[in-house]
């Protein structure tokens, strides 16, 4: 029992001490969660989505050389660990003169990494739209861009929505890896506080709970989004 209270002058009970540590560190962690984790997740997700849609559309359009290029990107990105990608971009690229800040490195790597997964999601969703609709579109006098924009993509997005939500949740958790490239983000903060306080379990659990909070909120948003989409779909049909 004495183990945990060693080095503390105050004679409070242990529960009080732990409670105090939790209440003191929670706002500190949350601050980094709000300042770093959330913006980084949103920005990277936006980038990933843009990449994914582009890559999926190129593959859908079946332009030969570009299609190969896209497959190559997906192959490399999905086949290598995120941590290794972060290290290559942040610590490695300066050797050939490309020096990106830690934030920019994390943003690009997270975005392009998740982008590869989401590209596959989008490709599947695009392919699930019956090809006949394309022909129907042409018959109705629409051009390729109009058909994609008004007919195929909206349906594909609806199909892809749950899987994209999944990717967003994965993204939030993956931001913790940016700690390894000197980003002062939430998990790194938990490590630092845990070093100062000499407590490991509680601090890491606390960080885990905050990630859980963020992801729970996302799950709610996803459900809300699905409901809205279902409603819109209902009106259209």
């Amino acid at each position: 029992m004495a183990f945990h209270s060693l080095g503390r002058e105050r004679g409070d009970s242990m529960v009080n001490e732990h409670w105090q540590m939790l209440t003191e560190s929670f706002p500190q962690l949350l601050e980094y969660g709000i300042k770093v984790t959330i913006p980084l997740s949103i920005l990277s997700f936006a980038l990933g989505l843009a990449v994914a849609v582009t890559v999926a559309l190129i593959q859908y359009a079946n332009v030969r050389f570009l299609r190969r290029l896209c497959r190559f990107y997906i192959w490399i990105t999905r086949g290598t660990p995120l941590l290794v990608q972060l290290f290559i971009v942040f610590y490695g690229l300066p050797d050939i003169g490309i020096k990106l800040s830690n934030y920019l490195s994390a943003f690009l790597v997270l975005g392009f990494n998740e982008g590869a997964y989401m590209a596959e999601t989008m490709r599947g969703a695009l392919e699930s739209v019956p090809r006949g609709q394309m022909e129907a579109g042409y018959c109705a006098g629409m051009n390729y861009v109009q058909i994609m924009g008004h007919v195929v993509l909206p349906q594909a997005f609806r199909t892809a929505f749950p899987a994209l939500g999944n990717s967003m949740i994965a993204m939030v958790k993956d931001t913790s890896m940016a700690a390894s490239i000197t980003m002062a983000e939430m998990f790194r903060q938990a490590q630092i506080i845990s070093g100062q306080r000499g407590d490991v379990l509680l601090l890491y659990c606390e960080a885990a709970v905050i990630y859980l909070l963020f992801c729970t909120a996302l799950t709610w948003l996803q459900r809300l989004g699905e409901k809205l989409l279902a409603k819109r779909g209902g009106v259209r049909a």
């Binding site: 029992m1 732990h18 379990l201």
Partner: peptide, 12 residues
């Protein structure tokens, strides 16, 4: 979860 963690910490 909170209760579990506190109990865990109280176990000598």
């Amino acid at each position: 979860i909170v209760a579990g963690v506190i109990v865990f910490l109280l176990i000598p």
